[in-house]
């Protein structure tokens, strides 16, 4: 699969990563190279195989739906680049 710079720009936007205009072309080449290489999987007949969804043969454990921890705003905000009055601060989202 060969992808072009417009596709790279699109997936970079989906991934919320700012990519400088001048790097798009080179990235398109690198990503195309990797995608072409992984496409060898199409040689494998998987029509009768279910996708692997669990690595270890076990049932996912259940637990009671109760609060186990809470009231920890202070340690949670400790690493925030910007926090005020017990909240994370982000650029304005509502006009």
């Amino acid at each position: 699969m060969s992808i072009d710079r417009a596709t790279v720009a699109k997936i970079a936007r989906l991934a919320r990563i700012a990519v400088p205009e001048e790097e798009l072309e080179a990235l398109a080449g690198e990503l195309s190279h990797i995608l072409t290489w992984v496409e060898q999987l199409s040689e494998v007949d998987t029509s009768a195989v279910a996708p692997m969804t669990s690595v270890v043969a076990m049932k996912l454990p259940w637990r009671a739906d109760v609060v186990t921890e809470g009231g920890a705003a202070e340690p949670i905000l400790q690493n925030a680049p910007a926090a005020e009055r017990g909240f994370f601060v982000v650029p304005k989202v509502v006009e």
Binding site: V38, L41, S42, V44, T46, V49, A50, P51, M52, T53
Partner: peptide, 14 residues
């Protein structure tokens, strides 16, 4: 085409 296919091949590797 990619992710589900890979999970199928992964099952074969296993």
């Amino acid at each position: 085409a990619y992710y589900r296919k890979a999970q199928r091949v992964r099952a074969l590797v296993r």
